[in-house]
Each structure stands twice: as C-alpha cells, then as structure tokens.
Design a protein around this nucleic acid. Structure first.
Lengths: 289, 289
DNA sequence: TTTATTAATGATTATTTTGCATTAATGGAT
DNA sequence: ATCCATTAATGCAAAATAATCATTAATAAA
C-alpha cells in the first residue's frame, strides 16, 4: 500500500469529486479512480459510495480518513526527525573531558556546538584516566578530550589546544615569578601532584620540569582532580603544577606562575564511528581549532 | 513510499543480512537492495551502514525501525477496524424507540443484535414524536421505531410488530373485563391519554375505540411518556389506553384489559443510507420479524 | 594467497501505473 | 419527457517502475 494513494484518498475525501481532486493532485481522473480502486481492493473496504454522479464517504471510509490523517502526520514528523538524526542535528553525544578545561575551553566549545546544533543533546562525563580508552571503545562515550595521545588502534586523535604548565602557589608564597624558582628552594617544597600513570605524556612533562632543575620532588599528596588540588594549595598544604587553563577557575588567594613547559589537549574518537552527530561535532571543533 | 518497502526494511533491520532477508521475504537480494535504496533516497536518510560484507543500522535507521514498527502495527489495527466497519460489525447505530416497547420487544431485539454483532455499539434514544422524522433525515438517529408509518420521501418503513390496545385501570377499579365497559360508564371515566398529534395513526386508533362506544372521553391529563401515564393510573388519577406491551413493565396494582383494537410498530430508516451497520441490523430485524 | 561470502549493479524482462479516448449513468434544464 | 452537461469507470496503448538474472567487487576467513 502506497502512502501516495492514501494521500490521494484523503484529498478525494475532502473534495468528494474525482476531476477536481485529480487536478489538484496533478494526475488524471483515470489514475485517481484506479488508485482508489486499488486501495479498496487491497483493504477489502469500500471507501466511497459512488455512482456516475456523486461521491460520498462510507462509514469505513470516513473512519479511515480520520485515522489516516493522523497517521500521515505522525509519519511526516518521524521522517523529519530521522532526517535530522541523519544530518547529525539530533541525537546525543557523550563527551569526556579533564577537569582542567571545564572552566576554560569547554564553555566556548559547548557554546559553539549548541549554537550550531541547537537540538543536539550533549552529555558531559568525567572519566578516570585509566577508563577513558575502554569507555570510548565500548561506546560509553563518543568523544574524549585528554592530555595524552591515544595509541590504541581504532581510536583516532588530534591535538586541539596547547597550554602552559604553571606553578600554583598561595598568594603569600615566596615564589613570585619564575626567577624565584631554584633547585635549592624547589627541593624544600611539598608538592601536590596529579596521579601520574605509567607512560602518560602529561606526567612526562611534569617529570621534565623537575629534571630541568635536577630535583626529585617531595610528593606527599596525589589527586586525580584539579579542583581538589587547588583547594589544597589554597589551604597551604603544598604547591602544585597544573595546566595554565585552571586560571579560569575561581582562583583568588592563588598565584599561577607560568612555566616554559607545554601540555597538549587531544580529542579522541572511534575511527569507525559513522554517527553523523559525531562527525558534525568533530568538524566543528577542528574547524574552530 | 510503499508500506511494503518499510516492511522489508524492518525485516532487514532484524536480520542485518540481505540474502537471508530476501529469502524470508520471497524476493531476490537484488530487489531488496533496490527497495532499501529507494527508501533511502526518498527519505534522504541513510538507513544502513554497509559495505560488501556487513550491514549495520545507522542511528537514524535504528530510530526509524523503532518508530515504523509502532506505526505499522497501528495501521494494521486501523485497517482491520475499517474492515469490520465495512462488514457492519463495528460502528455505532442510533435507534429511537417509543417508551411502550422498552420492556417488551426492545430487550429481545437488542439481545439478538448484540449476539450477532457483539462489537456493535448501540445507542438508544427517546425522541419526541414530532422530532422523529427530522432526526432521521438529519442523521441524528439511524433507525426509528414508531407507531406511525412515515410518509416522507427518502424514508422507508416496514411494520415489524402488532399489539393490542388495552384499557389500563387500577386493580380495584370496577372494570374487570371488556364486558364491563359500556358507553355510560366510559363517559364517567377520567382519561390520561398520550399527546395525540394531528394525523397520527396511533391517535386515530384510540379515537376509533371511543367512537365505537359513541363516547367523547374526558381527557384531563396528557403525557408523551407511557411510564408517566402508568404511574398516574396507579395513583387513581384516571384510567388510560396503552399498547398491551406495557404489561411487560412493572405493573403490580394495575389491570390491563385487552381491547379489540390493534396498533402497529414500524421501523423507519433513510432509504439512501448505505451504512453496512444499518443494513446488517435491518436485515436481522426483518429476518426475525 | 586463495576462497567463500555478500552487497551492489547493468541488462533484460515483467509488472504496474498512467494517460487518452470513450462509455454509461444521472441530475437538471428546456 | 427529452436533451444536455457532468462525471466516474474502463479498454487500450504507452510509459514508468520493479523484479530477476548474471555478474562484479569488496573483504573476512582459511
């Protein structure tokens, strides 16, 4: 049963006149007549009471007109919706991102995405470093923003941002600029550092910093979460090394001393993910870069 | 867009294999492939992610599968329902009937109809005599049971029942049988009679009764509704003449004296009404007669 | 590297739909 | 009553659409 013939039927049910309806539908009266006939024979329902002069809906026809109008509308809506999904304008995307950028580049990024695709639902997730890759592979997240490149096959990565490392100290700390930092004084500091995983390139950069001063830091506290680290520094429990982007967080009572070491931000996604939502968002991010 | 191709789509979405699906649907793989392609191009939505080896639903395809399954079910239900209406098994019929038969032949009639067409909805209406014809013509009722034949063009009538008139008196009334009734005593009675309309054949019969006794009755109360009349007779406010079928009503405290005058029952319907529900019901009634 | 599997596609055939011309029924006008 | 205009159905030919068969091309597995 063709939806087109149902549309013809509804038009005829409104006009109750074959010639007029056929004209409106841009077909001949003959074609319309046969369309209705085939509908009737397919349904085994007489739709119109008609003689050579008059056309009138039967009770069954009147019932079907009512119902079909609703159904056609519904289908129309569904098809439009599907088209939006196809175009990547609808749907959901789950993005994991590190805490450090939640106040700096994330707000910009989200604003851009949602102004370009206002119907898109974005879910933000904080995922522990060790789980990120698995979550991506298992479709628990669609996009991961990380400070490490991903070497897994099936996952693609691109660098999207670079920021400096900064030494984070309380406002009353003797370190005012980079020039105050020396091997001697560094060795006396107590450090609060992120949990550094084996082979993490982010961890490597931090190690490089210490190596450049030929110091092995006293690390007495570790946390995965930057906001925790910041709170601890504020309470004079130590000093920290964090990406510069934390400056965007609430940072009164703290001093960020920019260091000549850079840390990169990458986005990671499944190479074989053809979800149009993802490619749209990806394109947008890469275009903005 | 053909519903058949949507069914193919759903089958393929379940199988995710063209050859198997084509076999199940009794078409060739080539035909199925082209059906899906034409669906996709008509919708402007890619339904499956596929290469020469694998078939997988796209997000839009998966959405459509869900939605279309529901819609197809709905349509199926609608079409079946329409078929039943067509066959006159479903739908509604509105029947007007006089009060007098609501306890005698109506229950039988309704039982017959609803056992034959259990899905039929029957609406019973009490319509004032003067409105009956107009209501029928204006499609407010489909079937009118009356005590008068209908002379309007476009309305068909058939007699379905005949019953006797009866004199209705309180149990303690001196009239015990027809033999007690005389011109002299009749003239002393106070009568409660139905509102008698100009040209009503039912009214004519009642007039004939009085004429046969050469009496002009004292009518001091008139009511359209038999049950009201009966209540009044019970309270000794007068005596009445009613169709015998009122005997089936609650009638303790009353005596029905059968009179040698008959009143007929007719059914009336629109001559041009092709509603299958009506013709079914009509056939049933006429067959039972 | 070879083989088996499998979706797509070109060419042909079959089916369905359409348009044109005509027919037959019917309501209204004379 | 009769004729006329209107209008839905229909026979036939043409056009459009869909199906089949045979083949191709990609690819996962042996």
């Amino acid at each position: 049963m063709d939806l087109r013939s149902i549309k013809y039927f509804i038009a005829l049910a409104n006009e109750l006149h074959y010639w007029n309806t056929a004209a409106k539908m841009n077909i001949t009266q003959s074609a319309l007549s046969r369309q209705i006939q085939s509908l009737e024979s397919e349904l085994n329902v007489v739709l119109f009471d008609r003689n050579k002069r008059n056309v009138k809906l039967t009770p069954a026809g009147s019932f079907l007109k009512q119902k079909w109008e609703v159904e056609l509308n519904e289908l129309d809506f569904i098809h439009n919706f599907a088209r939006q999904i196809h175009l990547g304008e609808r749907g959901t995307i789950k993005i994991a991102h590190p805490d450090s950028i939640s106040a700096s580049i994330m707000p910009d990024l989200l604003a851009t995405i949602s102004s370009e695709f206002p119907k898109l639902q974005i879910e933000l997730v904080q995922v522990l470093y060790e789980n990120q890759q698995a979550f991506l592979s298992n479709y628990k997240i669609d996009l991961a923003i990380t400070r490490d490149t991903n070497n897994t096959s099936g996952i693609k990565s691109t660098k999207i941002y670079t920021d400096n490392l900064a030494l984070v100290v309380p406002e009353d700390h003797p370190y005012k600029t980079i020039k105050d930092v020396s091997t001697l004084s560094l060795a006396e500091q107590r450090f609060i550092l992120p949990t550094i995983d084996e082979g993490s390139s982010y961890g490597l950069i931090i190690q490089n910093f210490f190596k450049s001063f030929d110091v092995v830091p006293e690390v007495y506290l570790q946390s995965e979460f930057g906001s925790t680290i910041i709170a601890l520094v504020k309470k004079h429990l130590g000093i920290a090394i964090l990406p510069d982007s934390y400056l965007h967080h609430e940072s009164t009572g703290l001093r960020f001393i920019k260091l000549p070491f850079e840390t990169d931000l990458y986005i990671n996604w499944r190479a074989d993910d053809h979800n149009p939502v993802l490619s749209n968002v990806l394109n947008l991010i890469l275009k903005k870069l």
